[in-house]
Amino acid sequence: MSIKRIAVGAFALATVAASATLTGAAEYKVEDEAIKASLTGKAGDPDNGKKVFLNRKKGNCLACHVVSSLKDQPFHGQVGPPLDGTASRWSEGELRLRIVNAKALNEDTIMPAFYRKDGFHRVLKNFKGKSVLNAQEVEDVLAYVMTMKE
């Protein structure tokens, strides 16, 4: 990672912390490139998380990521990195920030922010003022992703 990239990351992190309050989503604090506290104060449910992860109208995570343990599911995408072993590479807080708003770490990423309600351009009516996932769904997906250890 170049120095420039780190600088961009730090700048984005600062703006995220501020915009979290502005957008009206439940507040969260970003520190050390992570959101350390649960968004709901509750632990996530990995079983429901798996459902949300697979649901094409919710997480739809396989559209972009390969997960070897989900081989029974068809059509894993190649747009993002494979998630095998991701929980051994990143802490829970780091993964939470990636799901909530990956642009805090890479402003040019294709990955949608799954927990952001507004500040978008020309959102379709049905999705206006809504985040892709609600806070508990983020925690549930996270709990499921945390099972992906090497």
Binding site: L62, G77, V79, P112, F120, H121
Partner: peptide, 22 residues
């Protein structure tokens, strides 16, 4: 970038051309 998924044309058709999406 546009929409709730917040993507521009270029995110798929420049940055990811050749990659499988689903």
């Amino acid at each position: 970038r546009r929409g709730q998924l917040d993507m521009a044309c270029k995110h798929c058709h420049v940055d990811n051309a050749g990659n499988m999406i689903r």
